[in-house]
């Protein structure tokens, strides 16, 4: 077993375990903090899979921005900081069944479909900032520009939604 495989197994265990804690913990703030651990472990796996720039973007955007947004939302909605007994729906069994079914279908599909296929990471082109930037601005520049319009629309939409209803002029 190589170093990469050992590291992948460790990071995978951390990611799966903390993801389970995200969806099962009774304290809302802890869920956001466990999400940081999950996203960080997935960023480490991205590094192992030769996707360097994606890993740093994951750290910057997800851990830096998204989790902070989630924490702010928890605070602004007056989320209690202590453990809450009623965070989950009363009947959790259907959710467990559906999630288990999803895992069974997806898991058997990927294991049956790619059993024995080796992921060769030796000599793989590392997706550094230079490589990724050259690719985005040469081959994928049109989707990139469309995404900037999408971000602008989301920005305007978020501002309109959070401006409130009472202070709109003329209504």
């Amino acid at each position: 077993m190589t170093v990469v495989e050992v590291l992948f197994l460790l990071l995978g265990l951390v990611a799966a375990g903390s993801a389970l804690l995200v969806v099962t913990t009774r304290t809302m703030v802890h869920a956001a903090l466990w999400l940081v651990v999950t996203l960080g472990a997935v960023a480490g796996i991205f590094l192992l899979l030769a996707a360097e720039f994606v890993a740093w973007v994951q750290i910057l955007i997800y851990v830096g921005a998204v989790v902070v947004l989630l924490l702010f939302a928890l605070m602004l909605t007056k989320a209690p900081t202590g453990p809450q007994p009623d965070l989950d729906a009363r009947r959790a069994l259907p959710a467990v069944a559906v999630a288990g079914l999803v895992l069974a279908v997806l898991g058997t599909t990927v294991v049956a479909g790619f059993h024995g296929v080796e992921l060769d990471l030796d000599g793989a082109v590392v997706g550094s900032a230079q490589t990724t930037g050259a690719t985005i601005f040469q081959q994928w520049v049109l989707p990139f520009e469309v995404l900037s319009v999408l971000l602008l629309a989301a920005l305007v939409g978020a501002i309109v939604l959070s401006r409130g209803t009472g202070r709109r002029g003329g209504e």
């Binding site: 990611a15 969806v23 809302m28 796996i45 899979l49 729906a89 559906v98 999630a99 898991g107």
Partner: peptide, 26 residues
């Protein structure tokens, strides 16, 4: 590394996310 390791981890994370969406009330 076998290719199905990351794919299975991805399936696992996806299923956990599905469970979280279905079971959480907040």
């Amino acid at each position: 590394m076998p290719l199905w390791w990351p794919l299975l981890l991805s399936s696992l994370l996806f299923a956990i996310g599905v469970y979280g969406v279905l079971v959480r009330r907040n």
